[in-house]
Design a binder for these strands. Structure first.
Length: 490
DNA sequence: ATGTCC
């Protein structure tokens, strides 16, 4: 124990070990906890979980109507109010809805596109491919799209998500089926979106954004489950494309606008919260429902956004390989949200119950047989897409019944930051990181060197460690690993 | 994550 510092000892003292990957924060830890907290992490990785993150898990447990546990995935770290990597479900009648449980980048998410191309077909043209993708898909902070959406198109994107984009010519019908929830959330109401959010969102529909968002050309280097991989259309050596982005300024503004309202609701409804950042309102209240209707608009916008990017990506591949996207086998494998709240039915204490599941930096992972899993994948379970950081592996998993029972059908969302952006910028130079990645065979095209430094592989937790916990715990099971060949980012 | 404070 002498190698543990003070923080570690403190953390160990307050947690109760349930099994190899399950650590409980007992209700006794804080007087306001309505349910215990649960952190799913290996003992080794527990050393990296900050005390502040554990306190956030405990704080979430104070919110009215919370079910079972306030949970944190192995990649959990400090967030706004709720931890990033947090999962919490609230009774749809007695519970609350909280923007902090979704995050600012509403429906930040990931999609995976397969191809029939082999890694050897793509290596020789990777620079050209990435350069063209970088040109075709606007990226960077405040970037504007080459799509000029009208007000009515923006409304349609807000309400219909992926379907709007496909019907506007940006994709094919099968793309819609292969999105979580068919690429939209019901109940979106654009009248709950401020003029300011509309103004920010309108020129950005069809942009990648900045930070850890990326468009990556990858190849499948390892298959863990042949049957599942085959059903998902994946095989070793095959080239895939991953898109990681969200709802841009629109989602950010929607979160900001409604946080202001809900921080007042907390007082109006007499809800006692240990942290102002946990602003919320009773799920049935007008304020909470208005947030949910606006949040759904942002979520749908993000699905439309990833769909438009998919279309432009296909166009670039068509140009470079001189064949149409269909003959290149460029089907959408799946698209998942990892920052969203959803009204779902779960079995709790043996009874079916409707709950608002808040997943913030956590991915839905529904089991085999679930009606929301596309027919094609029904026997396997929902594809769960976990992006790695720039230059590191990404993973494809599938949902399980254990996940449904244990975590409201949720898994982690990726690797999780281990160093702050500021610290990363002070430690690494963008040019050096770019050169290092090139030596590893990964070509990076980015808007600014600072973003490359902020996203250096070293500033993230090892994605394989995080994925292994999820796999061993059984809340999602590994199907395939993909490695980057080239990446375009903000 | 984010026109990194209208």
């Amino acid at each position: 124990m002498e190698d543990n510092n003070d923080q570690d000892n403190e953390v160990f003292d307050l947690l109760k070990r349930i099994d190899e990957y399950t650590w409980e924060i007992p209700r006794e830890y804080k007087p306001f906890m309505r349910v215990p907290g649960r952190i799913y992490v290996s003992r080794k990785m527990l050393n990296d979980v900050e005390k502040q993150t554990i306190d956030q898990v405990a704080n979430v447990a104070s919110l009215p109507g919370i079910q079972k546990y306030s949970m944190a995935m192995p990649d959990a770290h400090l967030g706004y109010g709720f931890p990033i990597g947090g999962v919490a479900a609230f009774d749809s009648e007695e519970g609350v809805i909280s923007p902090g449980g979704v995050g600012f980048d509403i429906n930040c998410g990931v999609r995976l596109i397969r191809t029939d191309l082999h890694v050897d077909d793509v290596r020789p043209v990777i620079r050209e491919l990435i350069k063209k993708l970088f040109e075709a898909v606007p990226s960077g902070l405040g970037s504007k799209s080459r799509l000029r959406a009208s007000d009515s198109e923006l409304d349609d994107a807000f309400v219909h998500g992926s379907r709007w984009a496909v019907e506007a010519g940006y994709g094919v019908e099968a793309d819609i089926e292969h999105c979580e929830g068919s690429g939209f959330i019901e109940g979106a109401d654009p009248s709950k979106v401020s003029a300011k959010a509309r103004k920010r969102g309108k020129p950005q529909l069809g942009t990648l954004g900045s930070g850890n968002h990326f468009l990556e050309v990858q190849y499948v280097d390892n298959i863990y489950d042949n049957d599942a991989a085959s059903v998902f259309g994946l095989e070793e050596g095959q080239v895939t494309i991953m898109v990681h982005c969200g709802s841009r300024g629109a989602g950010h503004q929607i979160c900001t606008d409604h946080l202001r309202v809900l921080s007042q609701s907390v007082k109006n409804y007499g809800i006692s919260i240990p942290d102002k950042q946990l602003a919320c309102a009773p799920a049935t209240s007008t304020e909470a429902q208005d947030y949910f209707k606006a949040m759904a608009c942002a979520a749908n916008y993000a699905w439309a956004n990833r769909q438009i990017i998919t279309h432009w990506t296909r166009e670039v591949f068509e140009q470079v390989f001189g064949r149409d996207a269909e003959s290149l086998g460029m089907d959408l494998v799946y698209d998942v949200a990892h920052n969203v709240a959803k009204l779902e039915e779960h079995i709790i204490d043996g009874r079916k119950k409707k709950v608002y599941v808040h997943r913030k930096g956590a991915t839905r992972a529904f089991p085999p047989g679930h009606s929301e899993v596309p027919r094609k994948y029904r026997d396997i379970g929902q594809p769960v897409l976990l992006p790695g950081s720039m230059g590191s592996a990404s993973f494809v998993l599938h949902g399980t019944q254990e996940g449904m029972d244990l975590t409201f059908g949720s898994a982690c969302h990726g690797s999780g930051r281990a160093m702050s952006r500021k610290q990363a910028k002070g430690t690494y130079s963008g040019e050096d990181v770019k050169k290092k990645l090139e030596k590893m065979g990964i070509y990076v095209e980015a808007m600014s060197p600072a973003v490359i430094a902020e996203e250096a592989p070293e500033v993230y937790k090892k994605s394989s460690d995080v994925v292994d916990v999820v796999h061993e715990l059984g809340i999602a099971r590994k199907v395939a690993r993909v490695l980057p060949m080239g990446v375009a980012k903000g």
